[in-house]
Design a binder for these strands. Structure first.
Lengths: 164, 164
DNA sequence: GGACTTATCTGTATCCCACAGATATCTACC
DNA sequence: GGTAGATATCTGTGGGATACAGATAAGTCC
């Protein structure tokens, strides 16, 4: 079927070929990275991953509605609704009705939200600075590039799974 | 403090420097990759990520106890207990008492479990073969290597956060 | 003004995971 | 041999992230 996986029920052992390596490392990464940036030693972050990414979009693209936010992030609108409620509760976002369209909502980052976003960004960068302590600038840049490309390709794949 | 992050409350915009790029892309990746391998189009996978990784350890290192499994994966034992129960319910693992130590448990993959693991592995590899359709073999290999290294470094960091 | 569409929200369900507190065993030591 | 402490696992509980389905409110169109 797929050229690279050959006989499917092949005799490869886990980790043998490149794709399996990538796949396995990604599975591991999901778990590792999740916990690393998060609840380190009782430090409950004011901003979880979801809120962080949401604020980032808000900060970059200004006030948006729920659907727009959901679309930009490839999430369900119901998920975004809850994330916004949560940000609002924390004082990092504000929700107002769209004057043009009474159904729609206008989500906006507050000053505290922008501050917190910046704080998080710096904190996370510092964290990875430590994790990648042994990496050369070139290696770090390569990692960044490959991840960017991987994310783009994952996005593209989600939009239209190539195989049918 | 950290050489690369300079002034901390610096004027960098998101994505400006390498660390921010890495950090951001990882945050995005967590979300993307999670959904991609998983519930694609009603295809409820018999093996979720957690069960997959657990079976992988079991397959590689043979029968193990809960604590050993938890340690190898950097998880809490309570989490592993539930994962094992779930695998057992699905018929992919078996749990028996350790004859030497009545407190301990011996978790073992069943034949069905090994079959399913292999099936998953192939399925996931094929998936990434599609996602990485445009990548050259060298690029794929680079990605695999960098991810492996990143995971190692994340692991090391979790064990002993370098800064204090 | 009724019918259809759209934007958001609420209900419900699934994963994944951790921490705290049982419970059952084992090990040491007197 | 019995008791105290260590150890292995399990159970209770709770939180984060997300999706799908259905409810509600507000536009739009004829």
């Amino acid at each position: 079927m797929s050229r690279t996986t050959k006989g499917a029920a092949d005799a490869e052992r886990p980790g043998d070929d490149t794709l399996s390596r990538v796949e396995l490392q990604l599975a591991l990464l999901l778990r590792r990275a999740e916990r690393t940036g998060a609840v380190r030693a009782g430090h409950t972050p004011a901003l979880e991953r979801s809120g962080y990414l949401l604020l980032l979009v808000l900060g970059t693209e200004g006030p948006l509605g729920i659907n727009a936010l959901a679309e930009r992030q490839g999430l369900d609108a119901s998920t975004v609704t809850r994330q916004v409620v949560s940000l609002e509760k924390a004082g990092f976002a504000r929700r107002g009705r769209d004057p043009q369209d009474g159904r729609a909502v206008r989500v906006e980052a507050t000053a505290a939200g922008r501050r917190q976003l910046e704080y998080e960004r710096v904190r996370r960068a510092a964290l990875y600075d430590q994790v990648l302590a042994d990496w050369s600038p070139v290696e770090r840049a390569t990692l960044a590039s490959l991840l960017e490309r991987l994310n783009q390709d994952l996005d593209a794949f989600r939009r239209e799974p190539e195989g049918r």
